[in-house]
Design a protein around this nucleic acid. Structure first.
Lengths: 233, 233
DNA sequence: CAGTGGTCTAGACCACAAG
DNA sequence: TTGTGGTCTAGACCACTGG
């Protein structure tokens, strides 16, 4: 025997990946169906299915009923990035976390926020601006709008003890959300809050979350200069 | 009957999500084990397993053998973003795609590139700089280093016909890679290549890909002003 | 040690879509 | 029409890990 036993889905996955990388199965090529592979590997079809499904999810295979399974020609690699609570992100680097609120008041939102959250004109919104601090240095500033109709309890929260982010995560589960990543220039107000000079390029994340069709919150995060968001494929 | 039959894994998943969102199962709480849920829903344990595994992958459940399954307290939401071939990204917006090479030559790389690719001092690298153009306007500029030891064939490729990106995707499959997203300021050379004024904030992606332990290529992409990368959770 | 999730199996039926 | 992947089932054993 030159190959180890292929009797579990991880082994099947490894063998499939190996055949793709070695180009034994070339891009665009139809690979054998599940039953044949199960026979070849000496395992159940369900095991082959589990492995092929996993590889397909990573983008390296295209599967269609009746048409069969093909090696993807332009593999659209999918990177998964986790969106951590900022406090945990900072503490995981062994830095001390702190947090300060600039302002927190009920306001009329600008039009683009209303449009973004798809609100009628009647909702009252809490406008909450704060900064998360790592080892005493501003890490990211947060400019958040919260739909009080969706989360009435938040009116009574003491934000000196817990950040709006964490309170919402724990108390206002959302079903779906949009995220946009971009670059922005540090204007005077941003620069002041981050304790930097103006004119620098800053990494920004804009996130809106929903509970089914009602918007919960829209937040704009602007990170300190040099911040990188990393992941692997 | 108030509820529909829960006899497939999608239905089980929907029911589980509903119980989490409605806080019938609260954050941190231990939920029933797979066998009990299977009994309650009237389906096989494997079906419950499929559903719970799916929810756990999205970050809303924490599963541990023996310890059981708990609702995540700080759900680390995972966003998956697909990394498309730039030509396809542009064409999917019904814009016309074109492409131009600024320079392509074998050079000694700067130290940070060598370190990033974890190379010995001996490898020869192809330095390839280009721009991808949408509807006649620069869309993103690419500054790429290619390890000729890993991809010798690339020396003979006619880059006027196919972009380095697409050739590599089709001919140099990789097993893994790192990606970093950041913001950068438009210096003079970047601004000139993007046809903009200097000083603007630009979204940047740095990606290094590997075939097992040998680096294939490191590429730095700098997008036109206003570019956003979007996804959903 | 014992309870939980993780996995495998053999067989069955279904849903989709290519020809 | 028919071949393919998608899924469900009942049962079994295994692997990890908390107590």
């Amino acid at each position: 025997m030159t190959t180890a036993n292929i009797n579990n889905w991880k082994a099947v996955e490894a063998e499939v990946l190996s055949r793709i990388h070695s180009r034994q199965w070339e891009p665009g090529q139809l690979i054998p169906n599940e039953s044949d592979l199960a026979l070849e590997f000496g395992c159940a079809r369900a095991t082959v299915n589990r492995a092929l499904r996993s590889v397909a999810e990573s983008g390296l295979l295209d599967r269609k009923r009746k048409a069969g399974t093909r090696v993807a020609t332009n593999p659209v690699r999918k990177a998964t990035l986790s969106i951590p609570v900022i406090r945990e992100e900072i503490e995981s680097r062994n830095q001390t976390y702190s947090y300060a609120v600039f302002s927190s008041k009920i306001e009329e939102p600008p039009l683009h926020i209303r449009a973004n959250m798809r609100l009628n004109s009647s909702e009252r919104l809490l406008h909450h601006q704060s900064v998360h601090i790592a080892d005493g240095k501003p890490y990211v500033i947060s400019d958040r709008w919260i739909n009080l109709e969706a989360v009435p309890d938040i009116a009574h929260v003491d934000f000196s003890r817990v950040s709006a982010n964490e309170w919402l995560v724990a108390n206002a589960p959302f079903t779906n959300g949009d995220i946009a990543f971009s670059a922005t220039i540090a204007n005077d107000s941003i620069a002041e809050r981050l304790g930097i000079k103006g004119g620098e390029a800053l990494f920004a994340i804009d996130r809106t979350t929903w509970n089914n069709d009602t918007a919960i919150t829209a937040v704009s995060l602007v990170f300190h200069p040099g911040y990188q968001m990393r992941t692997v494929v």
